[in-house]
Design a protein around this nucleic acid. Sequence first.
DNA 1: TCAGTTGCGTTATGCTATAACGTGTGTCAT
DNA 2: ATGACACACGTTATAGCATAACGCAACTGA
Lengths: 135, 135
Amino acid sequence: MTAPALTKNQSLVFDVLSRSDAPLSAYTILDKLREHGFRAPLQVYRALDKLLERGMVHRLESLNAFVACAHQEKECCVGHGHGTVAFAICESCGHVVEFHDHAVDHRLDDWARQRKFKPAKTTIEIRGLCDACAA
Amino acid sequence: MTAPALTKNQSLVFDVLSRSDAPLSAYTILDKLREHGFRAPLQVYRALDKLLERGMVHRLESLNAFVACAHQEKECCVGHGHGTVAFAICESCGHVVEFHDHAVDHRLDDWARQRKFKPAKTTIEIRGLCDACAA
DNA sequence: TCAGTTGCGTTATGCTATAACGTGTGTCAT
DNA sequence: ATGACACACGTTATAGCATAACGCAACTGA
């Protein structure tokens, strides 16, 4: 029932993302893992694919970058029980806040249902300035 | 008061996007405009930048592609009076529906206000299957 | 034992976007 | 008019993001 353990590459990539306080591009991850034997982008992308499947990592479409899921409580990442994830991205300090909003989810679901559109994945990203950077 | 006329390159790019029934990448636009003298990606990107500024074109972050704004009534594109734009993107036929939802806008605004986050640009993209393709 | 699946490593390639340079043209205050 | 400025344009080169296609190794389950 429980998901199989992470492979070595998957763990390495996930650790790098978890330790980072800002999103990382695949190539940045690659550079951070060269000393662990990574040589090629595909090693990173393949690990990311699996981590994305599990919901342990999110992709920020507007940045072409990746973050570890903020819900580090195990239940969340294993049984990705929440709906759509939204992100607030500070364009100054790079910090990202992940959040969920049921009202927004519900509203978009309604829209889709009315149009008979079948959602597969929804992206919500707010770019702007965080409190600290708005000065 | 009224915005200056489009330049030749801007018009060419906008026309290509307007005529397309699916999003186009910058390089696809470039290919379609080679016979009009376009030679380099920058010619396309520079035109797109201006069109994006005016709200006449939208960028789909999850596709790295561009669409003409669906509100072709002039008032909309000149005085971009609406709030955040959302998109439903069919992954089968490529068709994109643009829509606005005040409730969603308002909800995200509330979230930002509470966090003292200053939104600059918000991306909402639903990828899935349209009614026709869900079969 | 053999077929199927999954992960891995490597090389090569393709797609997306911008940097940095110089040119021409218009505006407008002097 | 002239010089300063802004802006669009064209070109070459380069940076940054992502995947195709090959082959090998390990595991799993008939």
